[in-house]
Each structure stands twice: as structure tokens, then as C-alpha cells.
């Protein structure tokens, strides 16, 4: 099973990288782009056939290491 994990800064936490990219997009003429947020994307193979167990395991990985839940949210999909 493959886990695809997205880690992003929580809403309300300043994302200076996102702001810089937003300004760059604006300079390029993409005037409609707003609220750019930068995050991380991770994917990993999981040796687990049971989807429920895989969910528990990936959630635990996110809580313990992949995201710092003080400042970041995470979401993932299993395929």
C-alpha cells in the first residue's frame, strides 16, 4: 500500500514562503492567485494490506515525526 502525505502550515500561521511565491506569481501576471501556502509532500510504501491498520500507522507517523502538530496540519491518502 502506498501512503501519500501532505503536511501544511496551519491556517493562521504566517507562511512567508507562500507570500513570496504569491508576489512572484503576481509579478508574472497571475493576478488571480491568492493565499499561496507552501507545504511538504511525502510518499512511502507500507507493507500492510489492512487499510484500517495502515491508517492508524500513518496517522501515528504523522503525529510523531512527519508533522509538528503545533504548527502543521497533515492529511494523507492510501492507494
Amino acid at each position: 500500500m502506498k501512503a501519500k502525505i501532505h503536511v501544511t502550515l496551519k491556517q493562521g500561521i504566517l507562511d512567508p514562503q507562500g507570500k513570496a511565491i504569491e508576489h512572484a506569481l503576481e509579478t508574472l501576471g497571475f493576478k488571480n492567485a491568492a493565499n499561496v501556502r507552501v507545504g511538504k509532500y511525502l510518499e512511502l510504501d507500507l507493507d500492510e494490506q489492512d487499510r484500517a491498520k495502515a491508517e492508524v500507522e500513518v496517522k501515528s507517523m504523522c503525529e510523531k515525526l512527519l508533522a509538528n502538530t503545533i504548527i502543521e496540519d497533515y492529511r494523507f491518502e492510501l492507494t
Binding site: L14, P16, A20, N68, I70, I71
Partner: peptide
């Protein structure tokens, strides 16, 4: 901070 021995977290400098 990451170890939880102190509270809070660090973000990128606002100037980048």
C-alpha cells in the same frame, strides 16, 4: 522544542 522539553515550535524567519 521538537523533543517537547520546551513548549512551542520554530518557524522560518519572516524575512526568509
Amino acid at each position: 522544542l521538537e523533543a517537547g522539553l520546551l513548549p512551542g515550535a520554530m518557524l522560518r524567519n519572516d524575512s526568509l
